[in-house]
Design a binder for these strands. Structure first.
Lengths: 134, 134
DNA sequence: TGCTCATATAAGTGAGCGTTGATACAAAGG
DNA sequence: CCTTTGTATCAACGCTCACTTATATGAGCA
């Protein structure tokens, strides 16, 4: 199954979003998905299987539980495909995407003054959900 | 139809790639797609319809021809969704991503050409797939 | 050994998507 | 007018995919 087919399903996209916050057990994921989409436990398990087989997630056996976490390679592949279109909405955007990475915090201090002057658009607050991870 | 569902089809992805080079008539697009995927003219036209209705392309009437060109909003939407995962694969990724896109694009053409030529079995070049524990 | 929790797999079913052949619509030319 | 060229739409069919219920597997515990 192609990466884009995997991402075609809203349940699977949501699972990936959940895993941004860090490792989650099958049960935790299932609880949220059941709540939000109203599908059964085997339904969620099947989606997890698709994500596993497509390399979007990896699983760690933890006693009776399966702990899922995110892998980035397929997402990078999607991102790479998308890259060829970025020039259409401005060459500046991929640089912005780079800025969004958390590594910017270091330079932030140094550029604090320059930032006020040079700030053109957008905000850097892209916090997704989990703040207490790690 | 969600943007990711639209991108789930390889024919539609290829059409978008073709339009990166600029405006193309339905006939030009159809010629390439027929060549590469071996589907009929109505088949291509249906894909163009999906792309139109999802806002990925716009059409300009030019005598008897329809000139298609790229719109970026849905692609930006996809890009925005993807943004929340970028922090996972590091800061310098945009340059690498461009490289990946170029290589993949050529590779993909061969794969899909092979597919149209007659696929005996499923391609398994995906080395990331995890063997389920058990 | 048997019971329970946590999760995966199997089998069956219904819906949606992609494909095709036939056809319709529009523009240009004789 | 009729024909040709370019493109879209229609109806029908097959296949894949997502969902469900039922069941299997495996770990922990008494």
């Amino acid at each position: 199954m192609h990466a884009f087919d995997v991402l075609g399903d809203p349940v699977r996209r949501r699972v990936l979003e959940l895993l941004v916050a860090g490792e989650q057990s099958s049960g935790e994921i299932t609880a949220v998905i059941r709540e939000e989409f109203g599908i059964s436990q085997p339904g969620v398990s099947q989606h997890l299987r698709v994500l596993r087989e497509a390399g979007f997630v990896t699983v760690r056996v933890d006693g009776p539980r399966r702990q899922y976490s995110l892998l980035t390679e397929p997402l990078q592949e999607v991102d790479a495909w998308l890259a060829q279109f970025r020039s259409f909405w401005g060459q500046r955007l991929d640089a912005l995407g780079t800025e969004l990475a958390r590594g910017k915090r270091e330079r932030r201090r140094r550029e604090e003054a320059a930032r006020k002057a040079g700030r053109a658009e957008d905000d850097d607050d892209n916090d997704v959900s989990g703040a207490a991870a790690g």
